[in-house]
C-alpha cells in the first residue's frame, strides 16, 4: 500500500506528512508529526480527548481521516499557549484544580476555548452542553465548569480593557 503525501497547516505552520488511506488524523498528529498532546481515549467519538480544530470547527480527530487534512488548517492543544504564556482557559484549569490525571485535559481545553470564541458569556448549562462530548473520569466536572466560567470572565475583562 503506497503512502499518501498530505500538505496541511498545523497551529499556523505548514506541515507535511505521509499516511495510509485509512489512518486517522489523530494517529498522524501523534505519530508522524510528534504532537502527542491530543489523546486517544476511545477512538469512537465518545470521549473528546482527541479534540482538535479543523478549519475552525472542533472535531474528534479520531474520526477524521489524516488525508482529509490536505489543504486544511488544524489547531491542536500544542498551539493554545503562546510560547510559555498560558491561555486563560489553561491557567484557570490549573487554578481551579480542574484536572487530576490530565488525560482528558487537552480535549477539554481545546473545546472550552472554542466555546468562548463563539459565546463569551456562557452560563453553566451552556458550558455543560458544549462539553457533553468530553468525558472526564477523575474530576466530576464541577471544577472544569468553574474553570471555564472563570476563563470566560477573564477573557471578557481582557477584551473590555483592550
Amino acid at each position: 500500500m503506497s503512502k499518501i503525501a498530505v500538505s496541511t497547516t498545523v497551529n499556523g505552520d505548514p506541515a507535511e506528512f505521509l499516511c495510509d488511506a485509512g489512518e486517522s488524523l489523530l494517529d498522524a498528529l501523534r505519530g508522524s508529526l510528534g504532537l502527542t498532546g491530543s489523546k486517544e481515549g476511545c477512538g469512537s467519538g465518545d470521549c473528546g480527548a482527541c479534540t482538535v480544530m479543523l478549519n475552525g470547527q472542533m472535531v474528534c480527530s479520531c474520526l477524521v481521516l489524516a488525508v482529509e487534512a490536505e489543504g486544511k488548517s488544524i489547531a491542536t492543544i500544542e498551539g493554545v499557549a503562546e510560547g510559555s504564556v498560558l491561555h486563560p482557559v489553561q491557567r484557570q484549569f490549573l487554578e481551579h484544580g480542574a484536572l487530576q490525571c490530565g488525560f482528558c485535559t487537552p480535549g477539554f481545553i481545546v473545546a472550552a476555548k472554542a466555546l468562548l470564541e463563539v459565546n463569551p458569556d456562557p452560563d453553566e448549562t451552556e458550558i455543560r452542553y458544549w462539553l457533553a462530548g468530553n468525558l472526564c473520569r477523575c474530576t466530576g466536572y464541577d471544577k472544569i465548569v468553574r474553570a471555564v466560567s472563570a476563563a470566560a470572565a477573564e477573557l471578557r475583562q481582557e477584551r473590555s480593557a483592550a
Binding site: G45, M58, G133
Partner: peptide, 9 residues
Amino acid sequence: IGSVQVRNR
C-alpha cells in the same frame, strides 16, 4: 446528534 464535535462533521 452526538456532541458538538460529532455534529460539526
